[in-house]
């Protein structure tokens, strides 16, 4: 697969040159895995890393022992926000009566905005070198990132308008913030990533960092069984004793076909988006452990010439 890689593949240094990095991608592309790998690599490179998780899932805590993970829920962020912005006495009551649902509907995006506001606070504190956000799931990345722009148009005055301005300033500042988009080397995820990339750049004006292509077959090249010379070790294995030559040939064809399809999709992505790419290897397991995350992070650190963890 190495021939499909761009000539200069970026390492972790390209990620840590902004204090805030938002990882975004559609369901099933492995956004959480990518967040964990980037966090592990940055931490191994000596950075103080905070991971922010928005969906209430515990996976990141398990994958990242020794790295701080914070969970931010919109309802709590809104209550905290109201509390800090002149609604001290009624913040609890607003939350408890569910009036917040109505506020959220009256001005859609308000929950996303208060989450971004909270993230801005963490970024501004300078307590961490890297605040890495595991972005919202499903097709939510664009609405999440455009929430501030939409609200600034709808609500020009008051605390929400001011908050929207500050969040927009942060998102638009290419020295403070970048978005890392994640995809698989498959047709539909690549199409969706390209659409998202244009939408994010045009409608939010946020800097796009490297694209991460997840779960790519980076194993040793498998020989083409149709072009192989006859080999005694293969010819001999015709009887079924657990591994026959037919099994091996079928497996080789399958692996080669999938690898070729992935390579074609990476080429297509390269043609559509002139952004640097980080390619992460597919692990040969059905569920990742912290050790897998460390192994996936290692090449990102080596590439920058820093020692392995």
């Amino acid at each position: 697969m190495s021939s499909q890689r761009p000539p200069t593949e970026p390492g972790i240094s390209s990620i840590v040159d902004t204090r805030l990095v938002i990882v975004a991608g559609k369901g099933g592309v492995g956004k959480t895995t990518v967040t964990a790998v980037l966090a592990r690599a940055a931490s191994a490179a000596g950075k103080r890393v905070l991971v922010v998780e928005l969906d209430g899932k515990a996976a990141l805590d398990e994958l990242l022992p020794g790295i701080e993970v914070r969970h931010i829920a919109p309802a709590m962020a809104l209550e905290e926000y109201l509390h800090d912005h002149g609604f001290k006495r009624i913040a609890k009551r607003l939350a408890a009566t569910g009036v917040i649902d109505v506020v959220g509907t009256a001005a859609p995006g308000i929950d996303d905005l208060v989450v971004l506001g909270k993230i801005k606070q963490l970024e501004r504190s300078e307590e961490w070198d890297l605040v890495l956000v595991d972005g919202p799931a499903a097709g939510h990345a664009i609405t999440f990132l455009t929430a501030a722009a939409g609200l600034r148009d709808a609500v020009r005055s008051g605390p929400i308008g001011a908050q929207a301005d500050e969040v927009l300033a942060m998102l638009a500042d290419s020295e403070r913030c970048q978005v890392v988009l994640v995809t698989l080397a498959e047709t539909t995820p690549v199409n969706e990533l390209v659409e998202t990339a244009y939408a994010v750049e045009e409608r939010v004006g946020v800097r796009l960092g490297p694209i991460v292509v997840n779960q790519v077959d980076l194993g040793e090249p498998v020989p083409d069984p149709d072009r192989m010379q006859t080999d005694a070790n293969i010819d001999g294995a015709t009887t079924d004793d657990g591994a026959t030559i037919d099994d091996a040939i079928a497996a080789a064809r399958f692996r080669r076909e999938r690898a070729a399809a992935q390579a074609a999709e990476i080429d297509r992505l390269a043609g559509e988006l002139a952004l640097p790419r980080i390619v992460l290897a597919r692990r040969l397991v059905a569920g990742l452990t912290p050790d897998d995350i460390t192994a996936l992070a290692a090449p990102l650190i080596h590439r920058d010439g820093t020692p392995a963890p």
């Binding site: 020989p223 010379q229 080999d231 591994a243 091996a248 497996a251 692996r255």
Partner: peptide, 12 residues
């Protein structure tokens, strides 16, 4: 090549 072929089968 044979070794690579069997290794691939083992991996899959």
């Amino acid at each position: 090549d044979a070794a690579a072929l069997w290794r691939n089968l083992a991996e899959l």
